[in-house]
Amino acid sequence: MRLDQALPLYLNHLATERNLSANTIESYKRDLENYLAGIESSTSVDKIEEESIQNFLNNIRSDLAESSISRLIASIRGFHKFLVQEDISRNNPAQYLSVGSKALRLPKTLSAEVINAVIDSIDTSSTNSSRDKLIFEFLYGTGARISELVNTDLDDIDFDSNVVKIRFGKGSKQRIVPLGKSLKVAIENYLTRNRNSLVNSKKPSAALILNAKGSRLTRQSIWEVVNKVALDNKLEDLSPHSLRHAFATHLLEGGADVRVVQELLGHSSVNTTQIYTHITVERLREVFSETHPRARK
């Protein structure tokens, strides 16, 4: 179903199920029509990505008051939540948007040196150290969304061909990402030190990463791991999404073609990927202004 086809269903839901006033519904309608106009209303509900919404919000931020932006974000979140609850969409790309100005900015790009230091900082004496390292290596080494890591099965790892199959949602599109050396070592260490002992012999799980009961690790558990490491390293900008953001930015800074990065990220449109090129251009300007002898004259 397309977004423009889903909008009338949501507005009807607000009127009949939530019994909202005509004025309130009209406000929702204006916000969401504005959203659909900026995000391409003919797009399938399952092809909208968090980055697309973020890009839309960044583009209109200068035109709206902060209060209007907050209301718009609330409207977008409510719309996508409804689509999932009614089984119209399999994924909720607006789930982690927060009402407030922080939601309108891309996460600060963590340098490769910082990320390497973070991974090296994980306590090796911990029982789950190999699991925790794998979570970071996977998110940064593949650019995967947190939901994609949760959905990854052991069979999705091809050790012979050195590739990883990344699946976006149940039964949805998939992409192939190279299996880097560090990630490969992290997976092998996890299989040897943790996973094999966690497998439930009566009901074995296909998941790559398991919890203590031998079931698939949840996205909440992954968030908790990343948050703990962020707190340990006093990094407010460290999150699962910031690792995906760093993956894309570092590739582009290293000279990768934007369309290659688009494929690796699983973006439907190169326009979504373009936002990362803006970040690298800003970084180039910053380096230039700080280092070129004529830049400050």
Results as ranks from 00 to 15, higher is better:
Leu179Pro: 02
Asn233Lys: 13
Arg244His: 04
Leu210Trp: 06
Ile135Arg: 01
Val260His: 11
Ile48Val: 15
Ser205Ile: 08
Glu113Asp: 14
Tyr28Glu: 11
Glu286Trp: 00
Leu72Thr: 08
Lys165Phe: 02
Gln54Gly: 14
Lys297Phe: 10
Asn116Lys: 15
Tyr140Phe: 14
Ile135Val: 15
Lys181Thr: 12
Arg105Val: 11
Ser182Cys: 03
Ser129Phe: 06
Gly171Glu: 07
Lys184Glu: 11
Leu252Ser: 02
Tyr96Glu: 12
Leu139Asp: 04
Ser221His: 04
Arg105Trp: 01
Asn196Cys: 05
Glu40Asp: 15
Pro178Cys: 03
Gln174Pro: 00
Leu97Gln: 08
Ile115Tyr: 06
Ser268Ala: 15
Leu134His: 07
Glu137Ala: 03
Lys202Glu: 13
Ser52Met: 14
Lys184Ala: 15
Arg283Ile: 01
Asn271Cys: 02
Leu183Thr: 05
Val150Arg: 12
Asn211Ser: 10
Leu235Asn: 10
Gly100Glu: 09
Ser147Tyr: 05
Ala144Gly: 05
Leu235Thr: 07
Phe82Lys: 08
Val281Pro: 00
Ile60Ala: 05
Thr280Ala: 02
Thr218Cys: 07
Leu238Thr: 09
Ser42Gly: 11
Thr249Arg: 01
Ser75His: 13
Leu238Met: 06
Leu208Ile: 12
Leu265Trp: 03
Gln262Asn: 06
Gln85Leu: 14
Lys203Phe: 06
Leu64Gly: 02
Phe168Pro: 00
Arg61Val: 06
Ile122Gln: 00
Ala295Gly: 09
Pro107Gln: 09
Thr277Ala: 13
Ser42Trp: 01
His80Lys: 04
Arg61Asp: 10
His245Asp: 02
Gly100Gln: 10
Asp158Ile: 04
Lys202Pro: 00
Asn91Ser: 14
Leu183Arg: 04
Asn189Arg: 13
Asp232Lys: 15
His80Thr: 07
Thr152Gly: 03
Thr272His: 04
Glu50Trp: 00
Tyr140Lys: 05
His245Tyr: 08
Leu284Ser: 12
Ala230Val: 03
Asp237Ala: 13
Val163Asp: 03
Thr16Met: 12
Lys213Asn: 14
Glu282Asp: 15
Ser52Tyr: 00
Lys165Trp: 00
Lys81Asp: 10
Val260Arg: 02
Asn116Arg: 14
Ala117His: 13
Ala248Val: 11
Ile119Gly: 02
Lys133Asp: 00
Ser42Phe: 02
His245Asn: 09
Phe136Ile: 07
Leu179Phe: 04
Val258Glu: 01
Asn211Met: 09
Tyr35Cys: 12
Leu32Met: 10
Asn128Ser: 12
Val164Ile: 15
Asp46Val: 08
Ile73Tyr: 06
Leu149Val: 10
Thr192Trp: 05
Thr273Tyr: 03
Thr16Val: 14
Lys228Trp: 00
Leu20Tyr: 08
Glu51Ile: 15
Leu284Ile: 13
His13Ile: 03
Ile275Thr: 11
Ile146Cys: 08
Gln220Met: 13
Asp232Met: 12
Leu97Val: 11
Ile76Thr: 10
Phe79Gln: 07
Thr218Pro: 03
Arg216Val: 09
Asn211Gly: 10
Ile119Asp: 01
Ile187Lys: 07
Leu57Val: 09
Lys133Arg: 15
Asn128Phe: 13
